[in-house]
Design a binder for these strands. Sequence first.
DNA 1: CAATATACTGACTACTTAGTAAGTAGTCAA
DNA 2: TTGACTACTTACTAAGTAGTCAGTATATTG
Lengths: 199, 199
Amino acid sequence: MSTHDEILRLGDDLMRMHGFNAFSYYHLADALKVRPAAVHYHFPTKDALALSIVNRSREAFHSFSERVLLEADLQIRLKSFVRIFAENADTGKICLMGAAGADFYSLSEDTRGAVRLFVLDIIAWLTDLLDEGRQCGDFTFDGLPRTRALLIATNLAASLHMARILGKKEFQSISGQLVKDICPSKKSTKRSSSKVRGK
Amino acid sequence: MSTHDEILRLGDDLMRMHGFNAFSYYHLADALKVRPAAVHYHFPTKDALALSIVNRSREAFHSFSERVLLEADLQIRLKSFVRIFAENADTGKICLMGAAGADFYSLSEDTRGAVRLFVLDIIAWLTDLLDEGRQCGDFTFDGLPRTRALLIATNLAASLHMARILGKKEFQSISGQLVKDICPSKKSTKRSSSKVRGK
DNA sequence: CAATATACTGACTACTTAGTAAGTAGTCAA
DNA sequence: TTGACTACTTACTAAGTAGTCAGTATATTG
């Protein structure tokens, strides 16, 4: 892998693990066994790097959304989406929505625009999935598909924070229930029987 | 207000607006018209400041939870909780769960512990509210009250990121539907009629 | 009134930060 | 083989960083 690509990969890792303001050109250079000026050669300013990191994630999501088209089952498509977050929960990273959202005011207008497009891509994809799924009976939910997409995306994004703060098992609770909520298969009645209710 | 308290208030603002690594002793001192050493006098290290900021938020939540006991209606109690987030959405701030979660690995073990207790307090309060509400028919939802509490907390936390990235109106969509989802009043059937379905 | 505590200031240190400028080794094409 | 291009290095700067230490003005208290 080229230095250029390694900087992007590591920059993405650091941004989502420690935050945009918590790593420096020196950190990147040191880990990649080059001099800080080499990082500046590929990404003149830190904001140029941030922009490239965001666009790289956006491209990665596009390739995910194409790859997932091979899977006909919409519930499995949703679970593939959830699995992306599960992998991040395992490694202690948060998603780019969460990271860029937290560091939003440290980013340039250009980079904020790229973040916006990235999130809009995700919400549009989820909206389409939910809309199609509700029409064919694979998903059950109230309200607009786009609103439901926002609810699911926010659940998953912040569940990575919860995984850090309270422990990884919390991710399983959240993502498990989130899927159950909209997948109608052998569902109990909505008002719980309260027999095995826990807290 | 004492310098001590003003540092805490401003520190909380900066932490939730820009992130823990995006402000310095100089920023605090400059805004409060004192010298940086004065900030060190009250909070010797930046981590001591972070810990105090978190504990202050925890105390603020305790006083919220006591204040809200005056309100008998559980749905209104929930809406009071949602309103805290709505105010943050307006000012562009994220909540401490989101901010501390993003900067988690910049914090000491002690401070992480305080964050954990803060989040556990919130989840416990929400869990009790939901549990009590389901028993008396004010709330309707599947699964454990604690899991539902995690879902609602993650929706609200990340909705503040969404408000930054996509615009404040997204917060209204998310929080509005979130409340509708668990408040049974004059609810449409769960499988949407698809008449006015939008995207 | 003297001793003590509080809440600072001024001056400083050691280090990190993003960013620049000039030079170099290797490749590749005309 | 020359001249341009790529991918760096070395050496640097100016600014910002957390944190220290020795003082000082002002209350407070025994």
